[in-house]
Design a protein around this nucleic acid. Sequence first.
DNA 1: GTGGTCTAGACCACC
DNA 2: GTGGTCTAGACCACA
Lengths: 119, 119, 119, 119
Amino acid sequence: MDWKLDDGRPIWPQLSQQLARRIIAGEYPPGSRLPSVRELAAEAGVNPNTMQRALAQLEQEGLARADRTAGRLVTQDTAALEAARLREAQAVIRSYFEAMSALGYDRERAVELLKEEFQ
Amino acid sequence: MDWKLDDGRPIWPQLSQQLARRIIAGEYPPGSRLPSVRELAAEAGVNPNTMQRALAQLEQEGLARADRTAGRLVTQDTAALEAARLREAQAVIRSYFEAMSALGYDRERAVELLKEEFQ
Amino acid sequence: MDWKLDDGRPIWPQLSQQLARRIIAGEYPPGSRLPSVRELAAEAGVNPNTMQRALAQLEQEGLARADRTAGRLVTQDTAALEAARLREAQAVIRSYFEAMSALGYDRERAVELLKEEFQ
Amino acid sequence: MDWKLDDGRPIWPQLSQQLARRIIAGEYPPGSRLPSVRELAAEAGVNPNTMQRALAQLEQEGLARADRTAGRLVTQDTAALEAARLREAQAVIRSYFEAMSALGYDRERAVELLKEEFQ
DNA sequence: GTGGTCTAGACCACC
DNA sequence: GTGGTCTAGACCACA
């Protein structure tokens, strides 16, 4: 498990986003128990407080919920999972348009090129 | 000017790619003189030898050519520039499909979502 | 059993009010023996004199009566209990209107909102 | 300006709620500048970090927004203000029902008593 | 100066 | 052990 950090944004949203993607990808399946705050923090090499914040964000997005004693469980709410998947997809799409724009392609051309590549 | 490095690949192709994107974006205009190897190396914080390899790659792609006295000049060959732009665009497209695949969307769905977002 | 103290008023009416609410709630049933002044004072962390005043107030309200030998007994006078219940209820109602007023709702609107929430 | 703290809940939601009520009550009018994090923290006698958290919550509720350099401004979005007012009102209503329940009145009777007191 | 982030470390409730 | 809160203090970007 590796953590890609530091793209200029604060660390905690990056951590939160990566956790979200892992959950969406099924790496942490619905209903499963997430590693503890301290474990995740040690793994990512950040302060437990920072990881705590990332997990709070995850919770607020409805992707996980804390059981004071049992650790943190991934939600089984498929609607919440689907919403998160869409949210992440839109982030990917946005960065796609940005990258293509840097290469001199407007949004319309960016869509066309993708369609060509697909066929 | 900042350099984003280390995504797992060797450093010199990354340098080469970023230089290519700057040329494509017009940051280094056709016919203009590139900074010296030493300058670029210092700026990127890498060994001049590494930067040399990156520039050689650039030359090999037809984006620049060495001039014994004037240093290294950006090509004025618009066809070569266009080819490079397309090459980079395809790399962007590939990583788009990969990112969407990680979120559970196949290529068809990935294209559809992009089109929706575009409209 | 915990004691919520210090809302600005003197301590003894607060103690008295909480004892009254316990009696009304049936926590100290009619006819039962109240804990001794010393016990109650120790539990609440106040001076026995202060608790004494609270209990005197309780007696004055007809909720308890001192028995030379048996300590202090909760009244069995249901009318007195009912009167006390109503008195406390009116205090709750008053603070409800005050809180809603602070939020910008007049008494009429405060009643309406409560009815809506009830349904 | 006084701060009522410690009802068992964490401090930061209490701070956040009191700030919200002040905004709703017009004590901090729409568009006005809130005191700085450090000022508010000193005033409330808490760590700036804790107050920061309370303010972040306020922001997330749409009641304020941060201007990195200009401080924090109360929203002018009347819809957000109205939503917050309703949220707070429901909290007041809930605690009303709880208090009446402790006195032995069910929700229906609690509504009736309020209506009687109103007339 | 402002808001915001991050770390370090202590402490609590829960079971 | 778990999640969560709070403090203390450093640091950054912005203007």
